[in-house]
């Protein structure tokens, strides 16, 4: 599928095509499951959230605007938001699993739709993260991938809450300035 039309599957889903949703699920669920698992660290919880994510996609595909987001960015945002909300609800048991102890990894290379933004876009963010103080960059990356709130981040990095807030806010301002250069 040509990249310029990579939103067509979502468009078909918006039209009520269940087969299109199945294909979208086939192509993107391993990536979104990884997103949910990293935040929730619990297979059962991540599976529940993943189901809700695709039901949300079915309902909201018509609000997807290809002029404002790429399909995979839109899907990842839904998966992250629902995972973070589940994590904050307190229903998730204390996470004991170590970061790299993930269940089996898909052998299938993700196809075009599941591939994230261009390598240039990724490199740009990495360069800008590289301009931050290393511990600040770690906090930003960890916040995004793990979905941890300020207090949890501060506890993990063993610094006061106020300092963590100031690290993150300053990092966001600097990232923005760097990304817009």
């Amino acid at each position: 599928m040509p990249p310029a039309n990579n939103w067509l599957p979502l468009w078909r889903v918006a039209g009520g095509d269940r087969g299109a949703l199945r294909l979208l699920y086939r192509d993107t669920s391993a990536k979104l499951f990884a997103v949910c698992m990293r935040i929730l660290r619990d297979e059962g919880e991540a599976e529940d959230v993943l189901q809700d994510v695709y039901i949300t996609v079915w309902r909201r595909a018509g609000t997807f605007d290809p002029g404002r987001a790429s399909p995979i960015t839109w899907l990842v945002a839904i998966a992250r938001n629902q995972s973070i909300d589940r994590l904050r609800s307190g229903a998730v048991a204390k996470r004991m699993q170590a970061i790299d102890e993930a269940p089996e990894v898909s052998d299938n290379a993700p196809i075009a739709l599941a591939q994230l933004e261009s390598s240039q876009e990724r490199q740009r963010l990495m360069d800008c993260l590289g301009e931050l103080e290393p511990r600040h960059a770690i906090a930003v990356r960890s916040a995004f991938l793990e979905g941890d709130a300020y207090d949890e981040l501060a506890r993990q990095m063993n610094i006061p809450l106020g300092t963590m807030k100031s690290w993150i806010r300053r990092s966001l301002l600097r990232l923005r300035a760097c990304l817009e250069r």
Binding site: A30, F33, A46, A77, P110, R122, L125, F144
Partner: peptide
């Protein structure tokens, strides 16, 4: 949307996991 697009590339670090 700006931040979702910019920070979203971090998710490419995650290895896909088959549900």
């Amino acid at each position: 949307e700006y931040w979702e697009q910019r920070l979203g590339v971090l998710a490419s670090e995650l290895k896909p996991i088959d549900p």
